[in-house]
Design a protein around this nucleic acid. Structure first.
Lengths: 171, 171
DNA sequence: ATCTAATTGTTGACATGTCATCATCCTGAC
DNA sequence: GTCAGGATGATGACATGTCAACAATTAGAT
């Protein structure tokens, strides 16, 4: 995805003095573009593996995992959307599709007439169990195991910082 | 996106001895999940900014940037797709849509009857110029400027390594 | 109790991305 | 030349995601 030399078209990505906005210097540019490209290729790779193994998409896998981590393998749609950082609309649509494949079910909520529980089915759990080892292996092979321990640590720091910032700064 | 405790449902994300596949240890888990969450939130933020400023999506911006970096602001569709790491199909569809908005045009290729050049229009260039400063500012505010120089450097290393690996390992 | 405001979840319209297929054209072996 | 095989782009069918609107229900102030 994207080649995205941020702009100063034609390679002039470093700061043109202090005029106007601050473009990216060489290291910054490398990190930013690298991040974007890595994202594109890594996703593709992991998605292919998941699809080949169990016919799951990454979003499918995320939904299954999220449910498998929930108490009693069931959780309110809204709560689930929050945890996953998805919109309720997206999750509702996606659950509908996964429901048609027998991976999850809906149940109504007693305490709240509006509410809906999303429940992991046995088939869904079985599929997740079957998919997980290969997925983890792929994550290692194409990502985690390529880094030194130090790099893993730093990446954890970075994402922690950025996430904290983005969560405060909700606009 | 995703909460994705990789699997060993309910938090047991560290290695259960050496049985079966190797799950992720604490640091690795932090890095992996952090990466995925950061991706989700950061994208959202940048996309919103781009949309608010100039009505562009991130893919739109990538296309414009890619063209603005090309010789004469024109390039063969195929070459462009390669550079962007997009499929030709995706690019063709997207160009069609951007063409309808006047941001790019198609021109036929003299030397190859099958070929098509994608060309950046004046309006496209103007839109990119208008969008870029805000985009770079957002990239800095929500990402680059949150890191130390050292962290930026390490991130550049990491993405370089992963990309090299993924490109060799094309499957 | 009542009435407004907020929340929950679903839905339809639409933008985007993927895949497989197709018509067209080029290329290289013969 | 010509013919098989590959490359180029376009396209239709379909999966996915976004956004705005909606019905149903709950919560909070009065």
């Amino acid at each position: 995805m994207n080649d995205t030399p941020l702009l100063p078209a034609s390679g002039a990505t470093r700061v043109p003095a202090d005029a106007g906005p601050r473009w990216l210097n060489e290291d910054e540019f490398r990190a930013w573009i690298g991040y974007r490209r890595m994202r594109a290729l890594l996703d593709l790779r992991l998605a292919r593996r998941l699809a080949a193994d169990q016919g799951l998409s990454e979003p499918d896998y995320d939904v299954l995992t999220s449910l498998s981590d929930a108490e009693d393998r069931r959780i309110r749609l809204s709560e689930m959307a929050d945890r996953m950082l998805w919109s309720k609309s997206r999750l509702s649509h996606h659950v509908t599709r996964m429901q048609q494949r027998g991976l999850v079910t809906r149940e109504e909520c007693q305490s709240d007439g509006r509410g809906a529980f999303i429940v992991l089915t046995e088939q869904g759990m079985a599929t997740l169990r079957a998919a997980a080892p290969g997925h983890v292996a792929a994550v290692r092979e194409h990502f985690i195991d390529l880094m030194t321990e130090e790099q893993v640590r730093v990446l954890g720091e970075i994402t922690g910082t950025v996430l904290e910032h983005l969560r405060e700064h909700v606009d």
